[in-house]
Nucleic acid binder design. Structure first.
Lengths: 240, 240
DNA sequence: ACAGAGAAGATTGCATGCAATCAATGGAAA
DNA sequence: TTTCCATTGATTGCATGCAATCTTCTCTGT
């Protein structure tokens, strides 16, 4: 799984990745005002790479800036998350449809099957802890990335890689039992998807994928609450 | 039609816009190597805003950079254009479907109707010259932007605004008579689209819009040739 | 006490210097 | 003649200084 960044290992890229993580995991609370100077001090670099990183994150819409007044971390409302997931579902659906219409090579089919096998093995262990969910996330990303590549539309891949919620099904915030249930549902979806793609059923694949991609939506409210309480917690920590 | 840029009127934004224009209209030929220093000299600014602008355009995938080796203008192959237009058609289709499912307020309907009226008036003049095509482009953008706003999905709007070919149907490269034909076809599509949306026919609206958005695809080959000859021309000019 | 103006502090936006890295060219050896 | 290496030239990547702008706090006047 190669990184989204095309450039080498310079400071700007590491700062960008680091900031993205800090935002997505809630270390930088939503709405937090961030300054070039502050982040530069925090990350031990000069303002220049921070400046470039903030510009990049602004294009990803993770931070928002006002002229001469710096940046603040984007607030994700429940509506924002619904919008983002809706778009993601549409794009993933398009990828599934294209893949089905194009047909699979033997190698491509094998790769998808291996994802399904791996997830099956993971579920069979019965584990439902944080490491298991991280493993699931990796497998899930592999599956979806493969389909996008099979679809063969470079622009589509580009947009999907830039989707704010591309990486994580965010299982770690769910009660463990419910998380395991998500794994099982995902597995069922993946199997049906592969079936549809193998049979060249483009429309079926598209809508199966849409539903599959919307699976996290029902959990969005919980995620929303989680982030907010998390944010409040950290704010209090700082205040105290 | 407000600009995509959220920031105020600083140098970086103007440089970004200017560079985007230079690339899209072929002044900077495809594959051209561009350097911070060179562009800074060309645009009479320091390297800093140029650097930020290039970073932004790299995210838009209009330029591509190699570590420590500068940037070059992206080459659009015919496949690239098909990919981009395919994605655009899917997103526009999604917007149309959402708009239809949501329903129109009286004001929203009036705005769409005014676009149709304006385009009708433009066609009635029978003009098929550059100014007419620019006027069409403006009306067309208005129509599509309205539908995206009606759909009400912020993420969708964001992605559509960033699509490389969002702005122009690129009519100016077509023979005038054929250009006028495009105007008529567009008008017909717009009318049917409004009808479908008004009647709440989401699926119909979606697929009407997809077809409509793919209309430029049949012209892509011509566009491709145009850009290439244009590029070759300018290269020769420089060489001579 | 409250409102408004002015000054001070903070922060961005831009320019430029310097070092690190990469490509290119030229020369020497086989 | 060809290949390999080293040196040179060019270009990015980063740090930092300075001016412009915005915010905020304070002081004055009503």
């Amino acid at each position: 799984m190669q990184s989204m960044e095309s450039r080498g290992s310079n400071n700007t890229e590491t700062v960008t990745s680091r900031l993205r993580e800090l935002i997505m995991d809630g270390t930088l609370p939503q709405g937090e005002k961030v300054t070039e100077t502050g982040l530069a001090a925090l990350l031990q670099v000069s303002r220049t790479p921070v400046r470039l990183a903030l510009a990049a994150l602004e294009q990803e819409d993770l931070v928002r800036g006002a002229p001469n007044r710096g940046f603040h971390v984007r607030r994700f409302t429940i509506d924002d998350m619904r919008d983002i997931l809706d778009v993601r579902a549409t794009l993933e659906g398009m990828a599934a449809r294209l893949a089905a219409e194009k047909g699979l090579t033997g190698d491509e089919e094998a790769q998808l099957r291996s994802c399904i096998e791996d997830l099956g093995a993971l579920i069979a262990t019965g584990h439902h802890d944080q490491p298991a969910f991280r493993a699931f996330s990796a497998i899930n990303i592999r599956f979806h990335t493969h389909i996008a590549r099979i679809a063969g539309n470079a622009e589509l891949i580009r947009l999907m890689e830039r989707n704010p919620f591309r990486s994580a099904p965010l299982l770690h915030i769910l009660p463990a039992e419910e998380g395991l249930q998500v794994l099982r549902e995902s597995q069922r979806d993946h199997i049906r998807l592969l079936e549809a793609i193998l049979q060249g059923q483009g429309t079926r694949a598209e809508f199966l994928m849409r539903e599959h991609a919307l699976l996290p939506l029902s959990k969005a409210t919980q995620l929303f609450d989680h982030i907010n309480t998390n944010t409040a917690m950290r704010s209090n920590q700082k205040a105290g």
